[in-house]
Design a protein around this nucleic acid. Structure first.
Length: 288
DNA sequence: GTACTTGTTGAACG
DNA sequence: TCGTTCAACAAGTA
């Protein structure tokens, strides 16, 4: 499940490899992933060049020539793989033997560039999508999502964070952190980790947070996301191709996915509970 | 067949 | 109208 750091990692990896490339062909075997018929989609993008790659929240934006853009969401299990004769990148990570078996049964979309290299979109559960928009259409689409600020830019200031919290006094802190209208890019993994960093239980109500805790939450969001990007994100076992190639941040996780294991700080057993249908993991001793 | 997975949305609640 | 909770959806795995 790529969250902000994973998507940022993919963006940086792709930037080095596909900027300037011309799209020679496109294929997609799952119509729900794209917002035009395959025939129309292909006709619109054929011959266009990739001019830039941007990220907004957990989405990637490929800026194409002639004012077209492809908005990509990987959802839980999506993966982008770039492959040429000499190299292969999976979600930002180079792998040695992955290209031989691509496309595979999880490959649902393929871009072929004029130099015969490829960009594959793999998705085990087919939740992800690649939608094509004009500049104007993209702007409208992004506006309609009412997204909050990017946590790693100055838009996400401490004042903004405090004010938003004031508006959501009765929210549980974990849910507040995961709400894209408040801050984008924080999913289940990083909300658990941020709560641990601030030593706050995920179920704590916003109105009961102490000023010191609010400060730690704010710092934690910035720090944990930045650290994760430095280590190229957290990768997962459901990325079949990258098996054995887990992102380095995986090793740094303090609570996420560690229920039943011992807390790295105090040795207490990490607990797992449900908050609004979602799993939350925390250390009952470290987090108050 | 069932429970579970996540990000996101929309319905329903007070 | 607003804040909040909950169910639903996408499709596959165990």
């Amino acid at each position: 499940m790529p969250e902000l750091p994973e998507v940022e990692t993919i963006k940086r990896g792709l930037e080095k490899n596909i900027i300037g490339k011309q799209i020679a062909d496109f294929y997609c075997d799952w119509p729900k992933m794209i917002n035009y018929s395959l025939k129309e989609y292909k006709a619109k993008i054929k011959g266009l060049k990739i001019q830039a790659i941007n990220r907004r929240a957990k989405m990637l934006i490929l800026n194409l020539s002639q004012s077209w853009n492809i908005l990509i969401h990987l959802k839980m299990t999506g993966q982008l793989v770039y492959g040429s004769k000499t190299k292969c990148l999976v979600g930002g990570h180079p792998i040695k033997d992955g290209y031989d078996c691509l496309p595979n049964k999880f490959t649902h979309a393929t871009f072929t560039f004029s130099d015969q290299s490829h960009l594959y979109f793999n998705d085990v559960r087919k939740f992800g999508w690649l939608r094509l928009f004009t500049d104007q259409g993209l702007e409208q689409e992004l506006d309609s999502l009412n997204l909050g600020p990017e946590p790693l830019t100055n838009d996400f200031s401490f004042d903004y964070f405090k004010n938003k919290l004031k508006q959501k006094q009765n929210s549980k802190i974990k849910q507040f952190l995961m709400e894209p209208k408040n801050i984008v890019g924080i999913g289940n993994i990083y909300s658990d980790e941020v709560c641990f960093y601030a030593k706050v239980k995920p179920t704590r109500l916003v109105k009961n947070l102490k000023p010191k805790e609010i400060e730690l939450l704010y710092k934690g969001i910035k720090k944990i996301l930045q650290d994760s990007i430095k280590l190229q994100g957290t990768t997962f076992s459901n990325y079949r191709n990258a098996e054995g190639e887990t992102g380095e941040f995986m090793k740094k996780l303090k609570v996420y996915g560690r229920a039943g294991e011992k807390c790295k700080i105090c040795n207490a057993e990490i607990k797992k509970i449900k908050i609004g249908g979602r799993t939350a993991s925390f250390c009952p001793k470290c987090q108050k």
